[in-house]
């Protein structure tokens, strides 16, 4: 009797709330996939079909081949790739300096890095637009790479600081006594140990650059430079919405982000908690 009531209590206090939350979060994903797999007629048919009666991949083929998602995918990949490289490079250097050196104003600098996270991106759209316009970089992928890098360096530097602090400084010292210069010590000893952290930083930056919409939308005006998120927004016209292509494009856009996040989520917890053990 006692056991059953305990089980019930556990169900209502733990599993039930989790189930509700999960349903709430997962339903839009499910509906997107569901829509992407239906043909045009079935999408708007009433009553709604919760499981497609006829599965088709036409929407994917159409979005990829005819609408231009192949190009958008390539653009997004290029942008995200370049952003990852530059962010990882700068964030590692800043993180190293923050972790290993004592200098005047270090606390203030860390605070400043955190403060940049409070500024909403939308607030900076107009100044950024004017700057890039003056530089002649509108609709140039470089503008987005610069903008993304700038916005991602602070958070990722703090993250890298955590990762680097977890590598005992004695390892570096041992390497220096063993015959390395500081840079060699970093290359031979610190870098290999930092690899998981670097991968994590790279993945987070990738997901950000991959999903970003606002800047990409404001700073690109040629279809040839559209990213996936901008391309998706154009599926919603003034008079009609191409539900099939929108859903299929969304699924295409989701896949890399989900794969990356699945890989990196454990590093996020470790990096922010500062508890990676060698």
């Amino acid at each position: 009797m006692m056991k059953i009531s305990l089980q019930k209590e556990r169900f209502f206090t733990l599993y039930f709330p989790l189930l509700i939350t999960m349903t709430f979060i997962m339903f839009p994903f499910y509906w997107t996939v569901n829509t992407a797999l239906k043909n045009e007629g079935d999408i708007v048919k009433t009553p709604l079909e919760y499981i497609p009666s006829q599965i088709t991949f036409d929407n994917f083929i159409n979005a990829w081949n005819n609408i231009g998602f192949a190009l958008f995918f390539k653009n997004s990949l290029f942008l995200a790739g370049c952003t990852v490289i530059s962010v990882v490079f700068f964030a590692t250097l800043v993180g190293y300096a923050l972790s290993r050196y004592r200098f005047k104003g270090k606390k203030a600098f860390l605070l400043l890095l955190l403060c940049t996270q409070f500024v909403p991106g939308a607030m900076l759209i107009i100044p950024l637009f004017i700057i890039f316009k003056n530089l002649g970089l509108i609709s140039n992928p470089l503008s987005l790479i610069i903008a993304y890098t700038t916005f991602q360096i602070p958070f990722n530097s703090i993250l890298m600081n955590g990762f680097i602090s977890n590598v005992p400084v004695q390892l570096e010292e041992a390497a220096m006594v063993d015959g390395c210069s500081r840079l060699q010590a970093i290359r031979h000893v610190i870098f290999p140990l930092l690899l998981p952290g670097i991968v994590a930083t790279g993945v987070f930056t990738f997901i950000y650059a991959w999903n970003e919409f606002l800047f990409a939308f404001m700073l690109t005006n040629k279809a040839a430079n559209f990213t996936l998120s901008v391309g998706l927004s154009y599926m919603m016209g003034e008079f009609n919405i191409n539900y099939g292509a929108l859903a299929a494009g969304s699924v295409i856009a989701l896949v890399p982000a989900i794969i990356m996040f699945a890989y990196a989520q454990r590093y996020l917890v470790n990096g922010l908690g500062g508890a990676v053990k060698g």
């Binding site: 005992p168 004695q170 390892l171 010292e173 041992a174 390497a175 220096m176 006594v177 063993d178 015959g179 390395c180 210069s181 000893v189 290999p192 140990l193 060698g278």
Partner: peptide
């Protein structure tokens, strides 16, 4: 003189072995 040129070897309290 930097440590690498001093021709010394050091043993650390936490051993500082390269984990990788």
């Amino acid at each position: 003189m930097p440590p690498k040129d001093r021709d010394i070897a050091m043993v650390f309290q936490n051993y500082a072995l390269y984990p990788h």
